[in-house]
Design a protein around this nucleic acid. Sequence first.
DNA 1: GCCTGTGAAGGATTTCACAGCC
DNA 2: GGCTGTGAAATCCTTCACAGGC
Lengths: 212, 212
Amino acid sequence: MSLEIPEVVINRLPVYARALTELAQRGESVVSSQALGELLDVTPAQIRKDLSYFGRFGKQGRGYNVNGLLSTLREILGIDRQWRLCLVGVGRLGQAIAEYGGFGPQGFEIVAAFDANPELIGQEIGGSPVHPIEDLERYLHSHRVDIGIVAVPAPAAQSVVDKLVAGGIHAILNYAPITAHVPRDVVIRHIDPVLAMQSMTFYIKRGEPGGK
Amino acid sequence: MSLEIPEVVINRLPVYARALTELAQRGESVVSSQALGELLDVTPAQIRKDLSYFGRFGKQGRGYNVNGLLSTLREILGIDRQWRLCLVGVGRLGQAIAEYGGFGPQGFEIVAAFDANPELIGQEIGGSPVHPIEDLERYLHSHRVDIGIVAVPAPAAQSVVDKLVAGGIHAILNYAPITAHVPRDVVIRHIDPVLAMQSMTFYIKRGEPGGK
DNA sequence: GCCTGTGAAGGATTTCACAGCC
DNA sequence: GGCTGTGAAATCCTTCACAGGC
């Protein structure tokens, strides 16, 4: 009944969880797929179908219990626990990531940072010490780290990804502007504002010469 | 023949363009869909099909001319020109965005910044002056701005989006952790590393209790 | 009466496979 | 022989529509 849940579905669950968190804070105790859908610009049927991959969480005639569904989703996603991250690359981008306050409250803690620049070694960045990149693989073998963040320049990125994989990491958040290759048992997500903008320009370009 | 190109296709084109830029720099002059596909972890058929929405750019038996295809894609996407951005929110995140060096070389220039904090008004951030948020809509009506970047805290984000839309903006890059609502003729893209991590944890969680 | 859960239908996207050309 | 462009097939994903429970 459950084997092979589409990845698109998994990607939507955190969005549902975020909205439920908001509703819970507002003190709402019940929400229908209709109401949640309006909040998120998603059809009610899609929400119900997505949830149905995991079980039956609603009550006919009422909707879903906000807190109940929220903790179920948190458990399904695994965001009900603490996750340990390491950050590779402590240049401008890496520093911004280390100092970004949004990870901690969601259970994502940066426990170590790495860089190739000798001048940065030993410094504290966002509360964690910067180690030389040469120590990365050894560190990963002797400490628990769940997710790697790649924030190095493009030319170095694939080799950093390879080191993370060699160190046993199975999840990578990549900020470098490359398509990195990973084995099939490693998940990778790319954060790239430039690509996002480059796809938007296609749509706004119309405005100019002829079209709509 | 061309009306209604799937959005997934549009989202892949910038990735192709990035790879072609890389190939061009390496001095490659021709590339097959096979070779490009290996570089990008995409099937050759998908690349050919995607490109076929726009025309016939390849040569049988040879492949695609790297520079030719690159400039075609740049033109299709509209990334062959300069785009003017405004940044709303100049807190830590906003400052990191303003100082991020990756936009300029790709033709995206931040021309103005806005914030609600009076202490920041008048300062220069990443080379552009910070204006009071109250001036946003007026500014948009009197200056050309193509894309708005939202980097304010979640509770303020929807109202900023509304102001951008009211000011005539048709493309928004949103860094705030909310699902923002926009009219159908406005494109919006979300950058949210937390959501990206929260979908990865689903897959690595398996490792722990029982399954693979 | 309202709303879920879900088969079945419909639509969208990807992949196949091959004719045609270099 | 190698590779594109593309209909057709296959797969994947979304939406419909309704039985069933509250």
